[in-house]
Write a protein that binds this DNA or RNA. Sequence first.
DNA 1: ACTACATTCAATTTATTGATTGAATGTTTG
DNA 2: CAAACATTCAATCAATAAATTGAATGTAGT
Lengths: 224, 224
Amino acid sequence: MSPASPPSHPQRFIELAEIARTLGHAHRLVLLDHIAQGERAVERLAELSGLSVANASQHLQHLRRAGFVQTRRDGKRVLYRMGAGPIANLLASLRDYAEHQHAEIKEFVADSIHQRERLEGVSIKELLSRMETESVVLLDVRPEEEFVLGHLPGAINIPAEELERRLSELPPNVDIVAYCRGPYCVLSTHAVVALRANGLQARRLSAGFPEWKAEGLRVEITPS
Amino acid sequence: MSPASPPSHPQRFIELAEIARTLGHAHRLVLLDHIAQGERAVERLAELSGLSVANASQHLQHLRRAGFVQTRRDGKRVLYRMGAGPIANLLASLRDYAEHQHAEIKEFVADSIHQRERLEGVSIKELLSRMETESVVLLDVRPEEEFVLGHLPGAINIPAEELERRLSELPPNVDIVAYCRGPYCVLSTHAVVALRANGLQARRLSAGFPEWKAEGLRVEITPS
DNA sequence: ACTACATTCAATTTATTGATTGAATGTTTG
DNA sequence: CAAACATTCAATCAATAAATTGAATGTAGT
């Protein structure tokens, strides 16, 4: 019982603060965003993020200390991937808060159940049962190259970058479920935010195309 | 189409980073924690957190810029209260991540549904229906003074500060639902973390005693 | 074993952030 | 309206964090 008396609260909050501070730099968020889309080597990440290699490396190690990423060596390169734990949740909460924040269009926020639904995304199981009873629009936001190689049956493809200018292709008042490459892929998270900002009903598929395929579910391929 | 080209990603991530960085300092988390328990004046917050008034004021304004707190004037003092938006969610995600992080006792993490349940807390409605079918232990973690003035029927009272050393009073393998003063009150969040760390099954009631009472539900009062 | 290459480390400089002090603002009370 | 008080502002100094550079480590290929 020797430590902890003057600040009284300390350790717990210090740890939380460190984690939060790790996310408190745009470069690290950008790096994390790229890593979320799949394993990447340092040099590639540096390039994608517009950083020098050394600088990227340092930020990456910062992220690693906080557990947001993990590494493995592959030949002469070191590959970074997402860490364990409820990271996606944390990032989603952060995004969600930010959205509510500078959206003075507070509309119908609050309501914690609605809230949870908005955020959490649907599971594959939930999606399947919904598709039986309701009409659901499946939106694949991956690049076209990936889409043509296989996608969920009936899905329409609007790559994330084109989404904003092709919003009119999507129907209002219908549940839209967006997906991309997997649970950590944030393309669909972004998409959902964008769609909602435009008054559409959108949710995210927690899993991505690879998981769908891995479950042995039917896959559609665009004939070439 | 003029902005956004050199760093390519910028604005969105910069905003997120600012929000995260605001939570990236132990003093601010401590302040937020106190504010979460009810409106407080600056001087009081400074005292509670062990900060100089001026310093506290600055941190508070930092929090306010990010929307985490709001203020109103009451006579010569300025009272701080929680801001709008899904703040509780964000903080819970942060705590949850931290827990998973330095809990090398990873046990049975992952599993996003389980996960969600662990985090989100039960609604009053959910609690009521559970109480009909299962046995649930209600745990009131507010100070005794508040408890005796009214609490949920059948709840047991272990104030947050005493929780760690009175863990043995709680039954294992039974769902424990902890509550305190309201959705922003973090006493119960802390309690849930502590209980789980000790192998108990605990969840948090999203609402608190005031909300329960406001719904017109039965309240028990300790006879004096 | 030598060379090329990817990444990390260590050291330095620069930029940001936090703490402290004293003055300024705005409010109540007599 | 003057005095007392709570809070905020502004300026300064101290501490931390970020970027840059060049060297060190570790792996692959010849």
